[in-house]
Write a protein that binds this DNA or RNA. Sequence first.
DNA 1: TAGGGATATCGGAAAAAGCCGATATATATT
DNA 2: AATATATATCGGCTTTTTCCGATATCCCTA
Lengths: 100, 100
Amino acid sequence: MDQLAIFKALSNKTRLEILQWLKEPELHFPPQDHADFDEVGVCVGKIQEKCGLTQSTVSEYLALLLKAGLLEATRIGQWTYYKRNEKAIESLSDFIKSGL
Amino acid sequence: MDQLAIFKALSNKTRLEILQWLKEPELHFPPQDHADFDEVGVCVGKIQEKCGLTQSTVSEYLALLLKAGLLEATRIGQWTYYKRNEKAIESLSDFIKSGL
DNA sequence: TAGGGATATCGGAAAAAGCCGATATATATT
DNA sequence: AATATATATCGGCTTTTTCCGATATCCCTA
């Protein structure tokens, strides 16, 4: 767990929002067929629409959050679904409380 | 509490280290006269020595952590002492656990 | 009130991050 | 195999961050 990489990933408004949207996908994204929110998360395209940034930027943001360990990715067909890594987020909280 | 400002403040190796050093000042700084670690913290000069960066840089880093709410400052004579704002750090941990 | 030490602020050069359009890759369909 | 769609990667321009030296401010003591 690279805390510096995690904090860098979190030090951007859009990336913070993405994490928060993914907390309750059904509240922030339209219903999706063929993929369960809780199981695999939300696909890149839907996240991109919500962000209002270009596809490449959002893809890079998601890759960064993934690399920091805050998200998990699942490829299904031509879609990549991203969801939160709740364990990592809890670990971060614990680290701040006792290690920071 | 501006989470984005907080994460930006934390997204730097030296600033992270400063926060961690200040957690146990007696372990990381030489004993100081006329000022209690627990009460007021550590003065800028000592933190600067430990960092190995210039005085201006460290002063700015401390100001940034202060502005983010993660540190508190006390001026005594010509010295400014900085210590952790434990309440803010705990709030951050809580925010990550339940709000992020 | 003059001088010295501690800290803060300013201006700038270099490095990194933010975002984009173009292009590449992967998968599905025909 | 050709095409279409979703996502990833690349190159580059712009903005922000990093970190410095110089200078200003604040406070103490002579």
